[in-house]
């Protein structure tokens, strides 16, 4: 309950009435946006959780293979073998617009062979490890895309929720109170004026 700092005049009343109208419309729009965002967010977050769990499992296995390969081979040999890789990774990024949130969409383009070293001095574990890395890689990209989307959506949701609440619990009630206050004040002034006139009229009649 707070009354805004305005003059109790007809002018102020008119502007306030306009303001409350647009505030209500804004509130409705924002509320719709919040609902839309929430719907999208729910979709994304469930997927994010599933993908993250899958990644953790697969990547753990891939790392184990790699560490095994690492321990079986000499450091220089391993690095040398990996230097021969002809794989090139390019990432194309498009952004989608969901409820004014920019969501990235990653498209992976790979070319070349990861396993292009001589087999003589390298261990078989390395092949397996690299293969598993390569297999999990698209999943990692997907994870990146989904998690980033979730993050962006969450941020926007938080902002929108604050705005909706500010309008619903602060701005609109305040405006309503102020409008009521001005209407009362104007009514009071009107009655005062009538009484004044009546008193003056009675005095004139009594004098006549």
């Amino acid at each position: 309950m707070a009354i805004l700092n305005v003059n109790a005049t007809r002018m102020a009343l008119l502007t306030l009435k306009k303001k409350i109208k647009s505030a209500k419309r804004g509130h409705k729009l924002l509320k719709d946006k919040q609902d839309g965002l929430m719907q999208k967010f729910m979709e994304v977050i469930r997927e994010a959780k599933a993908v993250r769990e899958e990644v953790e499992q697969k990547l753990g296995a891939a790392f184990k293979n790699f560490i095994r390969a690492n321990s079986l081979m000499e450091e220089e040999m391993l690095e040398g073998a990996l230097l021969y890789s002809t794989a090139k990774t390019e990432l194309k990024v498009e952004t989608k617009n969901v409820m004014s949130v920019r969501i990235p969409h990653f498209k992976l383009e790979t070319e070349g062979e990861v396993v292009s070293y001589g087999f003589l001095q390298t261990s078989g574990e390395l092949d397996i490890a690299l293969q598993s890395f390569q297999d999990t890689f698209p999943l990692l990209i997907k994870l990146a895309e989904i998690e980033k989307s979730a993050e962006a959506l969450a941020e926007e949701l938080e902002k929108t929720r604050r705005r909706v609440n500010a309008l619903e619990y602060r701005m609109i009630p305040d405006l309503k109170d102020t409008i009521k206050f001005i209407q009362m004040k104007l009514g009071e002034m009107e009655r005062g004026a009538i009484i004044n006139t009546m008193v003056v009229k009675a005095k004139i009649q009594a004098a006549a």
Partner: peptide
């Protein structure tokens, strides 16, 4: 739209394998 790069940050032994995939 265009091509972007991917980087991986970590300890030496863990990220060596990713180097072969073309990550930085």
């Amino acid at each position: 739209m265009g091509n972007y790069k991917i980087a991986i940050i970590g300890s030496r032994e863990t990220i060596l394998g990713f180097k072969a995939l073309g990550l930085e």
